[in-house]
Amino acid sequence: MNKALSTSRIKSLYRVMLRIRRVEESIAERYAAQEMRCPVHLSIGQEAIAAGVCAALTQQDGVFSGHRAHAHYLAKGGDLTAMLAEIYGKAEGCCKGIGGSMHMIDLAAGFLGAVPIVGATVPLAVGAAWAARLRGENKVITVFLGDGTFEEGVVYESINFAVLHRLPVLFVCENNLYACYTRLSTRQPERPIHGVAAACGCNVMLADGNDALAVYDVASRAVADLRSGNQPVFLECATYRWREHCGPNNDDDLGYRPAAEVAKWQAFCPINQLATLLNARPEGQDFITHSEQEISKEINDAFTAALAGSIPQQADLPGYLYA
């Protein structure tokens, strides 16, 4: 990797991840005020995959996600204030208060939708890629899914069609080992998830899901492959969710995952890894300090704006149902 390019890449990935981390932490801190009255599934610990993959995409490329979508939305360029306003149930939210945290969309940023039925957006991504192909658009469509999603039949159906028609889809499997409180080994036989995707005909790639640079490099290769008309790519990234499945807290007191396992993964913090690299470079520490300050101000401003948003009107609901 070119060293100069690498420094700017490290900085941008670091900043994207730090911003996601601080947004999520701010949500967690303010959640107890009971003004965010909807479930939240925080992305803390998993920032590198969102940052690395989205850095490899253009604004025109589309992204879909599921219930744990904040990181993907933000990394793709989704509007922060609209996201927070949505979680607060305000009219200025990205779904005008209808969706909450589990329904994110920002069409201008190419974030095409996230919904909480597990697996629900996987075929939509394939359909969007199919439409792009049929309409002659040079787009790559990415869908983020978890290890649990891979158990849904619709994922197999979607991959089958994507491979059959060689569609430009990037399936990104964030394998964080748990579906709610249930460990992967309780849910799937002992074989790699990506092995199944390979058997389905996907071009399989792997990356350390806590290493944003690695994710970016592999995702860039995947996107280049897809743009040149190669097979759909299934990118599996190992990572770990730090907080509880749903909600602002830690839940390791419940004992569903070994303390040593949690500690091991937290030692591989994706943000700290890049901070270490930055600190070794000239002005790296300054960049980190500046980033913290800028992000802190941006987040505070966004929360203020979101909280000052207006109340959505019941009378508007019927108008959303049919075109």
Binding site: P123, L124, V126, G127, A128, W130, R135, Y156, N160, F161
Partner: peptide
């Protein structure tokens, strides 16, 4: 023609419908 994958194919058609087809 389509694979025998009614749910997936419905989702794929929805994805196409929200993407201009």
């Amino acid at each position: 023609d389509m694979p025998l994958a009614e749910n997936g194919m419905t989702g794929i058609c929805i994805g196409a419908a929200i993407s201009g087809l």
